[in-house]
Nucleic acid binder design. Structure first.
Length: 712
DNA sequence: CTAGGGTTAG
């Protein structure tokens, strides 16, 4: 049916052209020598407008346009803002006062009243009794309430009951006593307990009851409702209640603001977040560190570097100190935005400011260094962690292992893994084993991988889908197909749900298998993705299948495939066709893959140079692409059209320690074709040919011969 | 702790 193959899944909040220019401009931040100049200083180089809200549409919208989504959806009754601020019901009428004093005052009053309550000990004991009793005995036990159930006594108890069932029983009991009117606070406290139990339905009923009985819903009520909905993933409910709040004229305070900003952020509604943020500021709200942390997280998820700079810059200009959570969020965000160097300098800035990193800080950084293949920085940080006694937890251990897998640090990983086995609190789990399987799997160490596999079942750690994928890849490369089948079968029996990555991995094994092994692996794949197997059989058993049939079926399969697995699927299918001498099919698949956007930037052209970029192609796909290119160039030569002086093909050198030798396979293919491409001295994986050499080589071969000549 | 908000793993 409907597919989105032609349109890659891009965020609707892509930067405008202006931002693009800004991003591409070389930034002084990138200079490694200016470590301490940090992000904050240079962020002032761009205009201080909120980035994504402005960047959200192709033509930068006016402020009014930016606010339109909100004003039409939630301010329909109050078309102008001044109106809102003058509403008598508003609980926040003085926008020049950034922090309403109500909050701290109320909290203070509460704690002092507690200390004056001489019955507090009895009540605490009674609360414990209630918490310990069976739910069925609850109402009987409650009859022994040690003192008159005054407002204060009831509140104290309500605050200390859990789980939510008991809180609710007690709340109903207090209501039935009719000893005093139920105020907002009783509902708020009950809702808080219900939130722990993720009981949004109950919370909403209570809120509706408040409305029905005319009990005021305040900011605490609304923020509790909103965060509960959020916790239950009921984001539209959260928005609905926020809109209701607005409509009834309650102005959000800073807590409600950050709660609801987080809702919009988690929905990916960057524009709404930014316009609400601006709206709040315009009416006197001073965002605090928590609000900025919400923004930072959102920009991180979007990979929006300009947004991250905006957060740093605004915090600086408002004089808000970065705390540990904000630093952690920003570090994570910089990682997602692909800025490892800036993450490193922000971390140094944090440490210099006297803040000690916690587990989350270090996890974020280690992950960033691993992904960036910054082995030196990763190992230095690891060393510093040990020297400074910085905290390590389970997740950090596993992240260190994954980092070792990324960097090919086999010995370090083995040492760490043994440490974990010897520890009490951080025994290796499926994540840890997966990281180790990844290391052995990509390093081709089948024996050690299989030892781990057996060890896992002994240790009672279940293999997950990624561990299964690592093993399948490793056993496939070692041509140990029977072991592969047995690992796959075991995984299925223990409940592993095959995903597209695993299917892609099986498919790649199919591409280089021979004889009965092919059928064995296809039988595995059949269990995970029967349509894919049917398609493979169509490609390899029936040469007469019409191209349009292939095209429709391929499109259908890709539509049902996770985006990150689409190109691997196409690569493998091309390899399968080539290895079975269905070269025309391989060319068709490459064409279809390009058509569906799986190979963006395959060809790049400048005045001086045309380049074929095959870095993300499999060996067979790269060979097919080269042949295709040569065929096209032969036609151009035949038509005597103009050509650039230089031609190049880039296979990349492969940053990964375990990466496959696409370059060498490509080199031997070039050699086989006797094409005049030579690998550059300084740049591994870059093959170049001059126009003169290439043209004379192309002319020496009749165009009609091209496809058949390339079939070896 | 004593009615409400933000951060860690392929």
């Amino acid at each position: 049916m409907a597919t989105n193959l032609s349109t890659p899944p891009l965020s609707p909040y892509l930067p405008s052209d202006n931002h693009h220019h800004h991003r591409r401009r070389p930034s002084p931040l990138r200079l490694p020598t200016k470590k301490r100049c940090t992000i904050s200083c240079s962020s002032s180089k761009r205009a201080p407008s909120p980035p994504s809200a402005v960047a959200g549409e192709k033509h930068s919208p006016s402020l009014a346009e930016q606010l339109k989504p909100l004003s039409t959806t939630i301010l329909s009754d109050q078309p102008n803002e001044a109106n809102l601020l003058l509403k008598p019901k508003s609980t926040w009428v003085n926008p020049t006062k950034p922090k309403p004093s109500v909050l701290s005052l109320q909290r203070h009053k509460r704690s002092s009243s507690h200390s004056h309550n001489p019955q507090i000990k009895d009540l605490r004991n009674f609360a414990k009794k209630l918490n310990d009793c069976e739910e069925s005995d609850f109402l009987a036990v409650i009859g022994g309430f040690p003192h008159p159930p005054t407002r204060e006594n009831a509140l104290l108890l309500l605050n200390s009951l859990r789980p939510w069932q008991k809180t609710l029983l007690f709340f109903d009991w207090v209501k039935a006593q009719n000893a005093f009117p139920m105020e907002t606070i009783f509902y708020n406290v009950t809702m808080k307990s219900l939130r722990f139990g993720r009981q949004f339905q109950h919370i909403e009923s209570l809120a509706l009851e408040m409305i029905e009985k005319g009990i005021e819903l305040d900011n605490i009520t609304y923020s509790t409702i909103i965060t509960s909905a959020k916790r239950c993933n009921l984001f539209s409910k959260a928005v609905e209640w926020f809109e209701r709040m607005y409509k009834t004229g309650v102005m959000p305070d800073e807590v409600t603001y950050s709660a609801v900003l987080d809702v919009y952020a988690k929905l990916g509604k960057v524009e709404e977040v930014m316009s609400l943020f601006e709206r709040g500021r315009a009416s006197g709200w001073k965002p605090d560190a928590i609000a900025f942390s919400v923004l930072a997280k959102m920009f991180g998820e979007a990979g929006d570097y300009d947004g991250i700079k905006y957060v740093l810059q605004e915090m600086k200009s408002l004089g808000i100190q970065l705390n540990l959570v904000v630093y952690n969020t920003l570090l994570e965000a910089l990682g997602k935005a692909g800025k490892p160097g800036l993450a490193r300098s922000l971390f140094e800035e944090m440490v210099d400011s006297g803040l000690a990193p916690n587990e989350k800080t270090l996890t974020a950084l280690i992950k960033i260094y691993g992904r960036a293949r910054w082995a030196r920085d990763a190992l230095q940080l690891w060393e510093r962690m040990r020297l400074n006694g910085w905290p390590v937890d389970f997740i950090l251990y596993n992240t260190l292992l994954s980092m070792c897998a990324d960097l090919g640090l086999v010995e370090e990983a083995e040492t760490l893994f043994e440490d974990m086995k010897g520890s009490v609190k951080c025994k290796p789990d499926s994540w840890s084993y997966t990281a180790m399987l990844n290391i052995y799997g990509s390093g081709g160490n089948v024996d050690k991988a299989m030892v781990l596999f057996r060890e896992m079942s002994e240790a009672g750690v279940e293999l997950n889908v990624m561990g299964c994928t690592c093993l399948v890849q490793c056993l496939g490369r070692a041509k140990k197909i029977d072991d592969l089948v047995s690992v796959f079968e075991t995984s299925m029996e223990t409940g592993v749900k095959p995903d597209d990555r695993l299917c892609g991995c099986l498919l790649s094994v199919v591409s280089y298998c021979e004889g009965e092994d092919v059928d064995k692996v296809l039988a595995c794949l059949e269990q995970a993705n029967p349509e894919l197997v049917a398609f493979v059989k169509m490609l390899t058993s029936d040469e007469s299948t019409d191209f349009d049939v292939v095209k429709e079926e391929f499109k259908r399969i890709l539509s049902n495939t996770a985006v990150e697995s689409r190109r691997p699927f196409c690569n493998c299918l091309i390899d399968i066709c080539r290895n079975r001498n269905y070269h025309e099919r391989a060319h068709e698949l490459l064409y279809l893959g390009s058509l569906y956007g799986l190979y963006p930037g395959l060809h790049t052209k400048t005045q001086e140079e045309w380049r074929l970029n095959v870095r993300s192609l499999s060996v067979g796909a790269a060979q097919t692409a080269l042949e295709e290119w040569m065929g096209t160039l032969a036609k151009i030569v035949q038509r005597q059209e103009s050509l650039p002086a230089l031609f190049s093909a880039n296979t990349g050198s492969g940053n990964h320690k375990f990466s496959q030798g696409l370059g060498s396979a490509f080199a031997s293919h070039v050699e086989k074709l006797a094409a005049p491409f030579t690998e550059s001295e300084g740049k591994a994986g870059l093959f170049t040919a001059t126009r003169e050499d290439l043209v004379s080589w192309l002319q020496s071969r009749a165009p009609s011969v091209m496809t058949t000549a390339c079939t070896n």
